[in-house]
């Protein structure tokens, strides 16, 4: 009968078996190699006396270093904010229908992106040499509302902010313009068809969607700006980098003091990166079907699930 001929594959029941994940031996080898490398670097940093960690620790929170740090943060915040505001205006000009606005915006970006920041900075600082007085009045007449000596108006701080802001604006204009262009045309059309006013269309409909494309580049720029502020040492402005230079010129402890500055830059960048993560997550709302877990949530989940599996299958 047919029951004998069929080499019956038994309808096996695997419900009592334990699941074993696939093994990745090369992943382990890679991990070990990298871990050894990291350990070697850490060992040399810790044991090589020339790093002079004691000196680093001594200067890390010294009064002069901290006030230099505050100046750095101040420069970054002011020129970052002003740079992005001006960049936003430049981006809107560039996207406008007016050929004049488009070419003014284009020329601005062209000039400031093609001159070295160092040169811009020195030019602003030496503006007094080019124009002795700055005045506000009616052009081509003798009417003047006010007039000042250029050198009193352009301090080191003003020159630094001016240079960093204008330079930053040129770059952020392009970033913001790219973000706005990445938003689907249909969004504007739908908003216009609903009678939503132009300003609201930009701020409520387009910008939040553009932010997805803008943010990663914008944070790149801001992190670049934090370190970019070190260039104002040419104006002898006592921000973080200039301050440690002054100190090591006096004490000759060059490397440890450079390390002090570096560690502070690392701290600022790390804090900014955390901000970036959460701000990007905020603007991902609606763009992703489900938001990925934050590192904190991941950790919680990891411990929760592992606690459960360990409880279930004790080895």
């Amino acid at each position: 009968m047919s029951t004998i001929t069929a080499p019956a594959v038994p309808a096996a029941d695997y419900s009592d078996y334990t699941l074993v994940p696939a093994r990745h031996p090369w992943r382990w080898v890679g991990t070990v190699v990298v871990a050894l490398g990291v350990a070697a670097v850490a060992w040399s940093l810790a044991t090589n006396p020339r790093w002079e960690w004691g000196v680093v620790a001594q200067w890390f929170t010294a009064q002069s270093v901290v006030s230099g740090l505050v100046e750095t943060l101040k420069l970054t915040a002011i020129s970052g904010v002003l740079g992005f505001v001006l960049g936003f205006i430049l981006a809107l000009m560039r996207l406008s229908a007016s050929p004049l606005l488009v070419s003014v915006s284009w020329t601005f970006s062209w000039i400031f992106r093609s001159t070295p920041l160092l040169v811009q900075m020195l030019l602003w600082y030496n503006l007094g040499y080019l124009y002795e007085k700055i005045s506000l009045g009616i052009p081509f007449t003798d009417v003047r509302f006010f007039e000042v000596q250029t050198t009193t108006l352009i301090s080191q701080f003003a020159a630094a902010v001016l240079g960093l802001t204008l330079n930053q604006a040129a770059y952020s204009a392009e970033i913001i313009r790219g973000g706005i262009l990445s938003v689907d045309q249909g969004q504007l059309e739908a908003a216009a068809a609903l009678g939503i006013p132009a300003w609201r269309r930009s701020t409520r409909i387009v910008l939040p969607q553009a932010m997805r494309a803008i943010l990663p580049n914008a944070f790149n720029e801001i992190i670049g700006l934090v370190k970019g502020t070190s260039i104002v040492y040419v104006l002898a402005y006592s921000e973080l980098f200039y301050t440690v230079q002054v100190i090591y010129n006096r004490t000759q402890q060059v490397l440890p003091l450079l390390l002090v500055a570096t560690l502070w830059y690392v701290v600022i960048t790390s804090v900014l990166s955390v901000f970036q993560y959460y701000i990007e997550r905020h603007y991902a709302k609606g763009a992703l079907r489900t938001l990925p877990l934050t590192p904190l949530q991941k950790a919680r989940k990891f411990f929760a699930t592992h606690a459960v599996t360990n409880a279930r299958s004790p080895r």
Binding site: D184, G186, E189, A190, A192, A193, G195, P197, Q209
Partner: peptide
């Protein structure tokens, strides 16, 4: 533009690809 927008509030439009605001 202001007056055109005002006129549009009397006219609803539904698009082929929805054009909902995703955020």
């Amino acid at each position: 533009e202001k007056d055109i927008l005002q006129q549009r509030t009397d006219i609803g439009m539904v698009f082929q690809n929805f054009n909902l605001f995703p955020h």
